[in-house]
Computed example of a mutant assay.
Amino acid sequence: MTIKGPARRRRLRFEGWIAGLGTSSGTRVVLGHWQRSPFGAFSDVMLERADGERLLLAPTRETADFIGATYVFDAVEVVPVRVGVAEDTWTVTAGSLALRFVTGPRGPVGLLLRIVPAALARRPAWSALTDGPARLLLPGVRTRGSAGAGRREWYGARDLRPVRLLSAFYEGADLGAPAPVDPPVRFGFGSVPRKPALTRVTTTVVLGPG
């Protein structure tokens, strides 16, 4: 993606879902399923192995370059990333990764987030206000911080659902049963919730001089 014009702060907004998943093999997976973004609709996968290797699976060179500049990875692969959603069941294929998970009913936090208006979730002030409660209720989670390449980023959550069932294979190997996202993933300034979950978010990335 080429950003033209004089240097100044620019806000790029991504609206969709983030799934944070742990497995008993120690591999943790973060799926981004973006229904609206500067790149159009797309999905990507961030995967951290038990030995700490961090891998990005992105569908185009353009999205791979942008995400790779915003977060930290040891390897980047441009591969088809396909996501299917049928009621509570999500099916994902991304290169050598095959993933299927099922969400459960919302808890109290999810029910509260459902009433947050979309316009409010986009505001930096809202992310600043919710950062403290998020850290307290969801250890490892932060709603704002510094990203790569001098970028700033904030998240506005609008829904949260637990993941009840999970099946995952990478390079033909079974990644095991669902497990907490532990240790936290290390792609950026914060992790996903420790308990496997699916979160609806509005993510804003600010480019340009700070």
Rank of each mutant, 00 (worst) to 15 (best):
G140E: 11
S127I: 04
P162M: 01
P193M: 04
T203P: 00
R135Y: 03
S127R: 04
A173V: 12
V92S: 08
A134Y: 04
A125R: 10
P183Y: 07
L113E: 08
R122N: 01
G150A: 00
A179R: 13
D88L: 00
R144S: 10
R144D: 02
V192A: 14
L111E: 15
V181A: 07
F169H: 15
A147K: 00
A168R: 06
P196I: 09
E153A: 14
A149N: 11
R152M: 07
A157G: 04
G208R: 08
R152K: 09
E171Y: 03
A86V: 13
A98N: 08
T143G: 02
G107V: 11
L111F: 03
D159L: 01
V109P: 00
L136G: 03
Y170L: 15
G188E: 03
P117R: 06
S146V: 02
F187V: 06
A134P: 01
G156Y: 05
T202G: 10
V116N: 11
R82K: 14
P133A: 05
V81M: 00
P108F: 00
G95Y: 02
S146Y: 02
A197K: 08
L113P: 08
G190I: 00
T130Y: 05
G188S: 12
R194V: 14
T93S: 14
P209A: 13
S96V: 03
V83A: 05
I115C: 07
V163W: 07
A177K: 14
P133R: 05
P108D: 11
